[in-house]
């Protein structure tokens, strides 16, 4: 069966250009006053830093570029921030919430 699986696991690297697939929605919820990710039959609560990263994930910027941008906003070095971002995006990719 494994051979016939056409879909492969997405692996996120620093060169990946991450984006939301259609039907995954980063949603500002007016009633709860918070950001949510709406997915098929699931709702996720991203934390503040995840939201900052996800807002940059438009399919044109690489993970490295996003990390570089956020080092300024969060006054952290890239070697601290980039591994965290990669872990977070890989976790989201495994949940089917982002493509790369």
């Amino acid at each position: 069966m494994d051979e016939s699986i056409s879909k492969k696991r997405t692996v996120v690297t620093q060169e990946s250009r991450v984006a939301f697939p259609p039907h995954i929605k980063l949603h500002r919820d007016a009633v709860r006053q918070q950001w949510l990710i709406l997915a098929p039959e699931r709702v996720f609560h991203p934390d503040e830093i995840s939201v900052a990263v996800l807002k940059q994930c438009d399919g044109t910027r690489t993970v490295a570029e996003i990390a570089e941008k956020l080092t300024h906003e969060y006054q952290a070095t890239i070697d601290v921030i980039q591994p965290d971002i990669l872990d977070m995006l890989q976790d989201l990719a495994d949940k089917g919430l982002v493509d790369a």
Binding site: E41, R42, V43, F44, H45, P46, M88, K95
Partner: peptide
């Protein structure tokens, strides 16, 4: 990040 399953095992935050 936490997850809500909205049909079978939902948890409201």
């Amino acid at each position: 990040m936490s997850e809500d399953m909205t049909l079978s095992t939902a948890q409201n935050k």
